[in-house]
């Protein structure tokens, strides 16, 4: 029997799943970058990397919750596009209005997903495909298919440019706060454990007397809200509402979740590993940019995508190898 009192790093990182590979890959990647590129570890690179990837981290974590219940949310990319336009329109009223406004808009679409999935029992894939198209259309309609510039005189611009407490950009601080809050929710609250239980076995959860519907409504609303927040970051990062952005984001988010070792069928996974997965996928682009900067090779954005795809495959392969070896040890 294992000594349950001793601290086991691997188990801590895995959270009972098989996410060890993502941490190994992430550390390896960071070491590679630090050793090979002079400016990789610079405050500027770290800050701008995190600033740009904040929106992907946020939607990945939201997606993680949905996938943990055994569902899927295809609408997040469109939601971000839609709410980036909302945020841009609201920016003259200041960040105090624009941020909650956009998040609420995302939340509303998330609730719509929840109604489809929970009350109307439409399969999540179909339900969120519908809202994906709807939100996309909505973004184009209210923006007239044009980018909507934010109000540069308002304090909305602070979000991406100014540092919170003189340390890090607001975007990063808010993202960190969301990640930590959701980590606590998943690990330490009844609601979070119910989310995991539902994905592990919906019927069993019902039999146990758990509130399955509440958990499902929560995850879709959360994912919508996360999409809304990503929209705010998008608008602030690009200085404009972007109705045409967000295409394929949902797949990136799913990739981050899966790379983080979360079972696509639900029931097992952690917030931390999902963040690691999102960082890892972002780092591939970051490192390729540095490599291009050395002037030896010049890869187009298209080739970068191909490389990222290949990389994803390698990490998942690594993941399953580690998982099967860990199994061999414990049994």
């Amino acid at each position: 029997m294992l000594d349950t009192n001793s601290f086991d790093l691997r188990r801590f990182l895995q959270g009972g799943g098989h996410s060890f590979g993502v941490w190994v890959a992430l550390v390896a990647m960071i070491l590679f970058g630090l050793l090979r590129y002079e400016n990789f570890g610079s405050a500027y690179n770290i800050s701008s990397f995190l600033n740009y990837n904040a929106m992907f981290i946020v939607i990945s974590v939201g997606m993680c919750f949905v996938i943990l219940t055994g569902g899927i949310d295809l609408s997040v990319g469109s939601v971000a596009a839609f709410t980036s336009v909302i945020a841009a329109y609201l920016s003259p009223f200041g960040i105090e209005v624009a941020l909650p406004g956009a998040v609420l808009a995302g939340l509303a679409i998330g609730c719509l997903n929840a109604i489809f999935v929970v009350a109307m029992r439409i399969p999540p894939f179909i339900a969120t495909l519908a809202t994906m198209l709807g939100a996309k259309g909505g973004a184009l309609v209210i923006s007239g298919a044009q980018t909507i510039s934010i109000d540069w005189t308002s304090n909305f611009t602070k979000l991406g440019m100014e540092n919170a407490f003189g340390l890090l950009p607001w975007t990063i601080v808010i993202t960190a706060f969301v990640v930590i809050a959701l980590w606590v929710v998943l690990e330490r609250t009844s609601l979070g454990r119910t989310v995991l239980a539902v994905g592990g076995g919906e019927d069993a959860s019902t039999m146990m007397g758990l509130n399955v519907n509440r958990a499902k409504v929560f995850v879709y609303a959360l994912s919508g809200g996360c999409g809304g927040l990503a929209g705010v970051f998008l608008a602030s990062g690009f200085g404009a509402g972007q109705p045409l952005e967000g295409v394929g984001w949902e797949l990136s988010a799913i990739a981050s979740v899966v790379v983080g070792g979360t079972l696509l069928t639900g029931g097992m996974g952690t917030v931390g590993a999902t963040v690691a997965g999102a960082l890892l996928l972002g780092l591939v682009f970051n490192i390729l940019n540095f490599e291009n900067g050395r002037g030896v090779i010049s890869l187009s954005a298209y080739w970068q995508m191909v490389i990222r795809g290949g990389f994803l495959f390698v990490v998942i392969l690594l993941q399953s190898q580690l998982a099967s070896r860990a199994k061999g040890v414990t049994q």
Binding site: G16, R193, G200, D203, A204, M207, M208, L210
Partner: peptide
């Protein structure tokens, strides 16, 4: 205690005991 379906095998022993009444 049903023959099947009543527990969540993916989650820990503790969770299966306390779930809903943590």
């Amino acid at each position: 205690i049903y023959q099947e379906l009543s527990l969540v095998p993916l989650r820990s022993v503790t969770e299966n005991v306390v779930m809903g009444y943590e």
